[in-house]
C-alpha cells in the first residue's frame, strides 16, 4: 500500500512514471491483499491450489500490460476496489467462520481504522 500511495500522490503530474506505476501497483496489490486476507488469521480452504497461481498470473499480466498502457484507462481502479472490497469480505468470512480468531480480527480492524480515519 505504501508504494501505491506514493505513486498515487505524484500521478496527477504524470511525472517520473508515477501514473503508470500507480496502475501497476494497483494490480499487484490485488492478489497480495486477497492472498493475505485468505490466509490470515487462519487459512481458509482453497478448492484448487492452481486457482491461486492463476489469479497471481492474471494480475501480473495486467500489471505488465499497464506498463504499455494497454488496459482501459480506469480499469486499475477496479483492481484496487476489488482488493479493498475483497479483503473486507474475506475478513467478514473469517469473522463468521472462525469465531476463535475474532480477537485477532478486531486488532486488524482497529489498525485499519487508525490508518484510514485520519
Amino acid at each position: 500500500m505504501g508504494l501505491w500511495l506514493i505513486f498515487g500522490s505524484i500521478s496527477a503530474w504524470h511525472l517520473l512514471e508515477g501514473a503508470i506505476l500507480m496502475h501497476v501497483a494497483a494490480w499487484l496489490l490485488l492478489p497480495v491483499y486477497l492472498h493475505l486476507h485468505w490466509v490470515f488469521p487462519k487459512p481458509l480452504r482453497l478448492p484448487q491450489k492452481w486457482l491461486g497461481y492463476f489469479f497471481y498470473a492474471v494480475c501480473l499480466l495486467l500489471a505488465i500490460a499497464e506498463l504499455f498502457q494497454i488496459p482501459p484507462r480506469g480499469l486499475y481502479a477496479l483492481g484496487f476496489l476489488l482488493a479493498m472490497a475483497g479483503s473486507a469480505v474475506l475478513l467478514g468470512v473469517h469473522f463468521f467462520r472462525q469465531p476463535d480468531q475474532r480477537r485477532d480480527l478486531a486488532l486488524v480492524l482497529t489498525a485499519t481504522l487508525l490508518v484510514v480515519i485520519p
Partner: peptide, 8 residues
C-alpha cells in the same frame, strides 16, 4: 505477505 502487502 503482511509486510509485502504493507510495502506494495
Amino acid at each position: 505477505r503482511l509486510f509485502i502487502a504493507a510495502f506494495t
